[in-house]
């Protein structure tokens, strides 16, 4: 758990520093995947099955948002 949190801290630092736009987008992507893992771990701790649905929706969200931003910076929507 501690390692996952350290990973979050590192990617947040990259999110803040990042020089080009691409850095920040990929930092966002990493953050959402880490959020999925955190939700799954919390579902394990609290021992409730329903929280896994939230993790699945988050997976969908990260994929679609990165795709949309990638299309957007190319030539407009």
């Amino acid at each position: 758990m501690v390692l996952v949190f350290l990973g979050i801290v590192a990617s947040v630092i990259r999110l803040v520093i990042g020089r080009t736009l691409l850095d920040r987008i990929v930092a966002m992507d990493v953050l959402t995947i880490i959020a999925i893992v955190l939700i799954a771990l919390y579902a394990h701790i609290a021992d409730r099955f329903v929280y896994l649905d939230v993790a699945a929706v988050y997976g969908l969200l990260s994929f679609l948002s990165v795709l949309a931003v990638a299309r957007f910076i190319d030539r407009g929507l």
Binding site: V57, L60, L64, L67, A68
Partner: peptide, 15 residues
């Protein structure tokens, strides 16, 4: 919630 997910799928198709 389910309707929003279906619309997200359509957005994938459009992209």
């Amino acid at each position: 919630q389910g309707g929003a997910i279906v619309a997200a799928g359509v957005m994938l198709l459009l992209i």
